[in-house]
Design a protein around this nucleic acid. Structure first.
Lengths: 339, 339
DNA sequence: CGAAATGCCGAAAACGTTTTCGTAGAATAT
DNA sequence: ATATTCTACGAAAACGTTTTCGGCATTTCG
């Protein structure tokens, strides 16, 4: 009913100029106290709130952060958003989220839509397709226009910007070493195809740890899954055709699927086969048995990403062009799937 | 580096007026073809894109939808967002997400921030605190200003707006009836406190189904949990002090927790105790045993909510003030936790 | 040849702010 | 009484668009 009230309407109703109203509401001493109070009361009565679009246009700042992630239903990404939102809100910023659905084209489109003045800066994690194509022209276009980007998790070294990642190699090394210390010595890893950074790096850490302890590293110890939807048979086969006593999985889903396959084959976890999974999500906590995981601290990563971006946005602009890569410490959460 | 290009700059560079540039880019026949082509080429070269803030201000439309939900890390809400995003994007809208964290105050603040012109309409699910307080003044303020709201899942009958819900009573009735048909006859339900709509309604459906079949409905069959974080002992105790042969749980978490407690006590699922859970999320699919669930179709709900909102936004405004409540059909997904 | 029509373009308003500058009148100082 | 400083306000520009209107020059028609 009652249309949104503006400075103009208040000015008309009170028979003063727009500038007078604006100044009064911002407590300018240029306006006599009498008038000031009258205007402020009137504004309060009609619940006046400055139009944020008009402010954005005037200030050339939107106080909004754009997020582009592959999927929101992945628990890890949800936690990251949660962290971004927390820090952003606290600093007076809002968060616009778009999903690439792992598609390069949608990532590009979303980016272009947001870059047209809708937001002040980006926080993003690359889609699988983008990683595969290694085409980052859309990112470059944005940074060229002076809009800062902070990348997390799935990042590219080709783009100069702040990055928030975990040390996948070290974390995987730690997980593997942990299993070795528990006396396991026939290890396998369930990973993703190599163009997904995390898969490649975690495989690398796995190999490193084994070599460092003098174990051979052979092809058959690696399973690299491309299509997450049909991973079941591949995992079952992987387990059946090897005599592992411990497994590293690069995500919860692979881990749970492996866990079920192992139990189905009559073996016991962790006595016969131990499991360590990446990403400490909801599945690990509630699976049977519960899974030992590498916690990825999504909430923390999101918070750091937001803080870094806002810092860049509010610094007196392009004085210095320095970019930082923050490596967030992972933490090993021990549960029932390891001895 | 290269600052964002505007109509004004193009006009200056090409020695024409701003209006000429604008018209040329919109293919107006008012501009000679020669000039038109020159301008369009120049614009393309410098990658001109109209500033969306300026457009929003001019058109009094932002083409943005605001979402307020309690938590994004809940799988159900994530799926809803996913659905909203899909439909919204397809219709040229963007999605701004804010989280209330189940807090009334944060819900109010977020709402006020978004209502200041940042968005064209709301899609939201109420926080627990709001449900408890039954204070909806912030919603009323928004609707009074002519901004449409679509509510889903946790809705209030006090607010006139479109609503997207599932028929909790019927769904719970169906789940209960399903268990009874399987020959179970000592049923319990693990629910939430009554001020959470879904808890109350699902308990109601549970009772209805039992009564209709002539079973007694007694106090001890109901467990109402307030604090989801410490539900374990309560659930264990609930199971130990009753001799249930089937359980309904109003969410996955309660169901998985119950499932573990049951298995720990040496009983078998589904032979000794069967389980049906609400919300067909990731846990149900990967728990051991996998859980039979009532699918809540979050993606679908989100899609419908977005469609309804956009329909309202694009209809020739306040011609008619009619509000609809859409009841989305649930679906029973049978898995291993029922015979 | 004069009048009307047409083609092509620019000026200006509007969206809602904030802020700089100008100024009228009053108060103070000389 | 005159010059100067305050006080209290309004006009206008700017942010980047789109669109309406007006007008000049050329063409077309009678």
């Amino acid at each position: 009913m009652a249309q949104k009230i503006t400075l103009k309407k208040i000015a008309q109703d009170l028979n003063v100029s727009i500038s007078t109203v604006s100044k009064a509401l911002r407590d300018s001493h240029e306006i006599s106290e009498e008038r000031r109070e009258k205007i402020k009361q009137y504004a309060k009565e009609f619940n006046y709130k400055p139009n944020s679009i008009a402010l954005s246009l005037k200030n050339q700042k939107t106080k909004k952060i754009g997020i582009i992630i592959p999927e929101i239903v992945h628990h890890f990404f949800a936690t990251v958003i949660s962290g971004v939102e927390r820090v952003a809100n606290q600093k007076g910023y809002q968060v616009i989220i778009t999903l690439s659905g792992e598609s390069f084209d949608k990532e590009v489109v979303n980016m272009e839509m947001l870059a047209n003045g809708s937001i002040d800066g980006f926080i993003m994690s690359l889609s699988k397709e983008t990683m595969e194509k290694q085409d980052f022209h859309h990112l470059r276009e944005v940074t060229n226009q002076g809009m800062p980007i902070v990348m997390f998790d799935r990042v590219s070294n080709d783009i100069p910007c702040d990055k928030i990642i975990i040390d996948d190699v070290a974390a995987s090394h730690e997980a593997t070493e942990f299993l070795l210390r528990k006396g396991k010595n026939k290890l396998g890893i369930i990973s993703t195809v190599d163009y997904v950074n995390v898969g490649r790096l975690r495989s690398q850490g796995f190999s490193q740890a084994l070599q460092q302890r003098g174990f051979a590293v052979e092809e058959h110890q690696f399973l690299k899954i491309e299509d997450i939807d049909n991973c079941e048979q591949k995992i079952e086969q992987f387990i059946a055709s090897n005599d592992f006593d411990a497994l590293v999985a690069v995500n919860e889903l692979f881990a749970v699927t492996a866990s079920k396959a192992i139990q189905k084959s009559g073996k016991k976890i962790p006595e016969d086969v131990a499991i360590v999974a990446f990403t400490d999500g909801i599945l690990s906590k509630y699976a049977s048995p519960t899974l030992t995981t590498i916690g990825q601290k999504g909430e923390e990563m999101g918070g750091i990403a937001a803080a870094k971006l806002i810092e860049k946005l509010e610094s007196s602009d392009h004085d210095t062009e320095s970019y930082e890569t923050v490596i967030v410490k992972t933490s090993l959460v021990e549960r029932e799937s390891t001895p």
